[in-house]
């Protein structure tokens, strides 16, 4: 895509531009924001049109909506417990927003908003603030006993408490880095291999075109792998949110 004169511009695809012409420029509405709106609308459309028929024998669309609903619903109950139903709308929105963003990013010329740590970081901060608020709301100040495991000698408190606090605060960091790193790494790999293809074809003539089939084959496999990663990372993000919520609801 972006191989100009034997240089590989692997990170150019993550460049932010303003979209929607002069109006977008005025309010800094970026191509990333466009994809967020598209992702949100897609999820909304899936649920709206999928559930409209209410058929006993579900159509493909209705199956998708129902299986997605049920999948997240069961995950909430399995991971958080019966109280998990209260967090179901949040987890559902989180999972499908990230999933739609990851999958949309795999289309050529589409922007992957989950490849920006500003976006994943904001989502992770949202999660950790929610988890902390839930913990404080349910347990009050007793929530802070979370940072000191039962049965540990009190003399070790000056050591254990800072470590536990750091461990707790590192959750949003690892949550956001995981999603961001996976998406960025995958897209950079695709871009680099695609650049190899163009460079071989341009530099080595007929032989190069034949040789370019190698990177092409790898890229085809990589796209499949990226589909897996996109789904898995959305799932892991939602699952870890559930596990953190479980900890906040049940403390130990």
């Amino acid at each position: 895509m972006a191989a100009e004169k034997s240089t590989i511009d692997a990170l150019g695809q993550f460049h932010l531009d303003t979209a929607l012409g002069p109006i977008g420029q005025l309010v800094n509405f970026t191509n990333s924001n466009v994809m967020m709106v598209v992702a949100a609308l897609l999820v909304f459309a899936l649920i709206h049109y999928g559930m409209r028929a209410r058929a006993l024998v579900p159509s493909r669309l209705q199956s998708m909506a129902e299986m997605g609903y049920e999948f997240i619903y069961n995950m909430c109950i399995d991971q958080i417990g019966e109280e998990g139903v209260r967090f179901f709308p949040f987890i559902f929105a989180l999972f499908f927003f990230i999933l739609a963003g990851n999958l949309l990013g795999l289309f050529p010329y589409f922007f992957t908003f989950t490849s920006h740590i500003a976006v994943t970081g904001a989502l992770a901060i949202l999660v950790i603030v929610l988890v902390t608020v839930v913990g404080l709301r349910i347990h009050g100040l007793h929530f802070f006993s979370y940072f000191f495991p039962e049965g540990a000698p009190v003399a070790l408190a000056p050591l254990i408490v800072p470590i536990e606090v750091i461990s707790y605060l590192s959750r949003p960091v690892s949550l956001s880095i995981r999603l961001f790193a996976n998406m960025t790494a995958g897209h950079v790999m695709l871009e680099v291999l695609a650049s190899f293809m163009l460079m071989m074809a341009a530099g080595l003539g007929v032989l190069g075109v034949a040789a370019a089939l190698g990177p092409l084959a790898i890229n085809v496999v990589l796209i499949g792998f990226e589909l897996l990663v996109a789904t898995l990372q959305a799932y892991v993000f939602a699952l870890l949110t559930c596990i953190y919520l479980h900890d906040a609801v049940h403390l130990h």
Partner: peptide, 21 residues
């Protein structure tokens, strides 16, 4: 076409699994 009677969506553990089955 069979139309489901309107039912509360999240009433059971696996609301849709039953219907599809």
């Amino acid at each position: 076409m069979f139309l489901t009677p309107p039912r509360p969506i999240a009433s059971k553990r696996t609301p849709f699994g039953k219907t599809t089955c």
